[in-house]
Computed example of a mutant assay.
Amino acid sequence: MAVLAWLLIPLFAAVGAAIWAGWASRDRTSGDVAELAGYARFRDAMERAGSGSDAVRN
């Protein structure tokens, strides 16, 4: 039974490595368009907020 355990350890490690490799190499570009559009809206809002006459001046 101990031999079986020693044979299963590398098998589980190989399966875990394959799962991790698949997860690490996934395509993550699908959400970039929405994130960039949100950042552009944020930048526009910050520019509008900073251009008001009630801005704090030293």
Rank of each mutant, 00 (worst) to 15 (best):
G52F: 01
G16K: 00
L11Q: 07
V33E: 11
F12K: 01
A17S: 08
A17H: 01
V3L: 13
M46A: 10
G50A: 12
G38D: 07
R43E: 10
L7A: 13
A17G: 06
I9D: 03
A21L: 09
G22V: 03
M1H: 14
W23H: 11
A5R: 10
L36S: 04
A24V: 08
S25N: 15
A55F: 02
P10E: 03
S53M: 08
I9C: 09
A37D: 08
F42C: 07
M46Q: 10
A18D: 04
L4C: 13
T29M: 09
D44Q: 14
L4S: 15
V33T: 11
R26C: 03
A24F: 11
V15K: 01
A14R: 02
A18F: 13
W23L: 14
S30C: 06
D27L: 04
M1E: 15
R41S: 08
A5I: 10
S51P: 00
A34R: 12
A40W: 02
N58P: 11
P10I: 01
M46W: 03
D27Y: 03
N58T: 12
L7Y: 02
A34D: 14
D44Y: 03
A21E: 04
A45V: 00
A49L: 06
A17C: 07
R43L: 13
A34Q: 13
G52T: 09
R26S: 14
S30T: 14
G16M: 05
D27N: 11
F12P: 00
A2P: 00
V3M: 10
P10Y: 02
A45Y: 01
A37W: 00
E47W: 05
A17D: 00
V33C: 00
E47C: 02
S25W: 05
T29Y: 07
A21T: 05
D27S: 04
T29E: 11
L11H: 02
L11V: 15
L8V: 11
A13C: 12
D32M: 14
T29Q: 10
L8K: 07
R57D: 13
D54F: 09
A55C: 05
V15M: 08
D54G: 12
L36Y: 06
M1V: 14
V3G: 09
A55N: 11
G22Y: 07
E47G: 03
R28G: 03
E35A: 15
A40F: 01
A13P: 00
